[in-house]
Computed example of a mutant assay.
Amino acid sequence: MEPTDLREMMPALESSVYCNWGAGGPSPRRVVEAAESALEHHEYEAPAAAGMYPAAFEVYDEARAAVADLLGASLDEIALTQSTTDGINRVAGALNWNEDDVVVRTDLEHSAGILPWQRLEREDGVEVRTLETEGGRLDGGLEAVRAAAEDATLFCVSSLTWTHGTRLPVEAIVEVAHDAGALVLVDAVQSPGQVPVDVREWGADFVVAAGHKWLLAPFGAGFLFVRGGVEGDLVPAAIGYRSVEDANATDYRYAAGARRFEVGTASPAPHAGLTEAIAILEEIGLETIQRRIERLTDRLKEGVPDDRLLSPRSYESGLVTIAVDDPERTVERLADREIVVRSLPNPDAIRASIHAFNSRADVDALLEALESEF
């Protein structure tokens, strides 16, 4: 299958120039049909057959296997969540925090990678250190990381910055953090679906993401990677029958691996959609997807003046940030022309997210609509 073939299966693209994949990726018909089919089976057939819980668990198992294959992880290292924010909070809630602990984050984290640590700072006296950035890059490089790592408990960093589309040096950050005795959590939600991801190469302790952006899955299909062996010292804040080996035992034991981070009953539909979405993208090939994103973003950047382009001119991701005088008004004006992008709170700009399922005509339409801004 080619990216252009899948485009024809995406109803949301029939009436708009959609360039907002970094916020949410419209699903193809096959994905929605897979979610619908799982829900119909669960509600119509399973009750009188094997049962609703076994039907749901079969879907969970399939999704866990698909995510493990996507990330280069083992089955025991994957937990299913609802979202990236949900995954980060499950990790944050599993450590025993006190006023001697230190969390390090960058100043470019999404609110999902800021608010949980602000809460720990307020409630438990945890120190939060912020790595400063400039133009989407770490200001001070790895020396700044080393300085911040002293006595640190946990680093929280993004694989791709949502503000600039830059790639942070995750492997190097992980090495520095581990040398200092700190754990590392990677917010990877902008990576799966547009670039190949191998969690073994990163070496991080936790990787959180969700399927509703570049993976084209429905809302509610999140996932959490927990590096094997790390989970032994963690006690999740929430517990339920999916967290333990035997929910009926008088003395519970947590399930092996990342499964201790799962809790209770959830709809199988979103994760059935995620499984199908991953299968579709693998049919196309993630390398093929990445190459097409690179070509299309290069085309977009060629039409943006240097003083307006806030993302790197050379390819790093499909996220392209463009300075405009009035971001909110620009987004509204583009929407009037059926072109979908988003504004950013910082920097003062708009962000176009270009996926492999966009076309050159989409890019040209966006550039034409932005001419008055330049």
Score class of each variant (00 low, 15 high):
Val363Ile: 12
Leu281Asn: 02
Val195Pro: 03
Thr153Arg: 01
Ile322Phe: 13
Glu109Asp: 10
Glu368Phe: 04
Asn20Asp: 13
Phe206Trp: 06
Ala23Gly: 11
Ala188Thr: 00
Val363Leu: 05
Val324Asp: 09
Arg253Thr: 10
Pro327Asp: 07
Ala182Phe: 06
Leu71Lys: 11
Glu316Ala: 03
Glu33His: 01
Gly264Val: 01
Asn358Trp: 01
Gly140His: 12
Val340Arg: 07
Leu13Asp: 04
Leu296Lys: 12
Tyr252Glu: 12
Trp202Pro: 02
Val341Leu: 02
Phe206Tyr: 07
Ala272Cys: 00
Leu216Cys: 08
Val331Glu: 12
Glu127Cys: 05
Lys301Pro: 02
Glu58Asp: 14
Pro268Leu: 04
Thr275Phe: 00
Glu36Cys: 14
Ala94Cys: 03
Ser267Ile: 06
Thr330Lys: 13
Gly125Leu: 09
Pro54Val: 03
Arg64Ala: 12
Ser372Thr: 14
Gly72His: 00
Ala266Glu: 08
Asn89Asp: 05
Asn248Thr: 09
Glu62Ser: 12
His110Asp: 15
Glu132Val: 08
Ile88Val: 15
Thr288Cys: 05
Pro327Thr: 00
Ala221Val: 10
Leu108Val: 06
Pro11Cys: 03
Thr84His: 10
Met1Pro: 12
Thr4Trp: 08
Asn98Ser: 14
Ala238Val: 07
Leu71Met: 14
Arg299Gly: 06
Ala256Ile: 08
Asn98Tyr: 04
Ala63Tyr: 06
Gly257Ile: 07
Val331Leu: 05
Val363Asn: 01
Asp233Ala: 15
Val208Pro: 06
Arg30Glu: 15
Pro270Tyr: 03
Ala269Lys: 07
Ala147Cys: 00
Ala352Gly: 05
Val320Trp: 12
Glu371Val: 04
Met9Gly: 02
Leu344Thr: 14
Ile339Leu: 10
Asn89His: 10
Arg200Asn: 13
Leu120Ala: 10
Lys301Ala: 05
Ser37Trp: 13
Glu121Gly: 00
Ser27Pro: 06
Val199Cys: 06
Val186Cys: 12
Glu282Phe: 01
Pro236Ile: 12
Leu39Asn: 14
Pro305Lys: 13
Asp100Tyr: 08
Ala149Ile: 05
Ile88Lys: 03
Glu62His: 09
Ser314His: 11
Thr133Asn: 08
Leu309Phe: 08
Ala349Asn: 01
Thr130Trp: 03
Leu234Ile: 08
Glu328Pro: 02
Leu75Cys: 11
Val31Asp: 01
Leu370Ala: 13
Cys19Ile: 07
Glu245His: 03
Ser37Pro: 02
Gly303Ser: 13
Asp246Ile: 05
Val207Gln: 01
Gly211Glu: 07
Phe219Gln: 13
Glu175Ala: 15
Arg242Cys: 01
Val340Asp: 07
Ala365Asp: 10
Pro270Ala: 02
Glu283Arg: 15
Val103His: 02
Glu316Trp: 02
Ala217Asp: 09
Glu373Ser: 09
Ser158Leu: 00
Pro196Ala: 13
Tyr18Gly: 02
Val226Gly: 06
Val103Leu: 07
Val17Gln: 00
Lys301Cys: 05
Phe261Ile: 11
Leu75Phe: 15
Val226Arg: 04
Glu368Trp: 10
Ala56Met: 11
Ala365Met: 07
Pro169Leu: 09
Arg351Gln: 03
Pro47Lys: 10
Ser111Leu: 08
Ala237Asn: 04
Thr250Glu: 15
